[in-house]
């Protein structure tokens, strides 16, 4: 564990807490893409298949459980909760995310560290996570204005993978056999996808104005 990875995990945890805060405090999920939440639930379920077989550390196990439980809780809440579900922007959240699942799975079959069930699903979860934010970014683009908590949620969600890139650079230089190139390339793509969001987020922060995405 290094400071970059710990900062990344904490940033990721903060993004989840901000999302939960937004939904429970405002009893609304407007501006949140259910499709992105479903993709993230799938990412965690397919990435942590080794949850009960490979014990890494208490921290690792607890964080995996938190990520799986929180992503499923948000999906269930957005689908079932009678008050929250009414605020879901159903007609704006129309990204065909099944294509993202299919593309990630095909790529995982072609490019993986080892052609085993666990490794293919791990690579699938890595590729899918890079693309999972797309429905959310499209939804924000369409809805134009971004409320503070939603903006902070997406900001921290994007920032966490940037910390992981620093972590991979650090581990590359400090550990002999470290090669996590699938996660690294995918993590770079993931972070770049946030580039324009980060730009408009910074502009709104600098002008102390409400965040506006160009229609």
């Amino acid at each position: 564990m290094n400071i970059f990875r710990f900062a990344g995990d904490m940033t990721h945890l903060i993004s989840i807490l901000v999302l939960l805060l937004k939904i429970y405090a405002t009893k609304s999920c407007s501006g949140i893409s259910l499709k992105t939440q479903e993709l993230y639930a799938l990412v965690f379920l397919t990435r942590y298949l080794d949850l009960f077989t490979d014990f890494i550390s208490v921290y690792n196990t607890i964080m995996k459980l938190v990520f799986i439980a929180s992503s499923l809780a948000v999906v269930c809440c957005m689908r079932m909760h009678r008050v929250v579900r009414r605020s879901y922007d159903k007609d704006l959240d129309t990204f065909r995310h099944y294509f993202l699942i299919l593309a990630s799975f095909v790529l995982a079959l072609l490019v993986n560290e080892k052609f085993t069930f666990q490794e293919i699903f791990w690579a699938f979860s890595i590729y899918l996570e890079a693309l999972a934010i797309l429905p959310q970014l499209v939804l924000l683009q369409r809805s134009g204005n971004v409320d503070n908590l939603t903006g902070q949620y997406v900001f921290f969600l994007g920032a966490y993978r940037a910390f992981y890139i620093l972590n991979w650079i650090y581990r590359y230089f400090t550990e002999q056999h470290f090669s996590r190139w699938i996660a690294c390339v995918s993590g770079l793509v993931q972070t770049v996808l946030y580039a324009d969001f980060f730009y408009y987020y910074f502009i709104s922060w600098k002008n102390n104005a409400k965040m506006q995405l160009p229609a």
């Binding site: 990875r5 990721h12 890494i56 080892k114 972590n167 056999h177 996590r180």
Partner: peptide, 10 residues
């Protein structure tokens, strides 16, 4: 196994 570096990251 050694060659399959355990996935120690989240």
């Amino acid at each position: 196994s050694k060659d399959q570096v355990a996935k120690d990251e989240l």
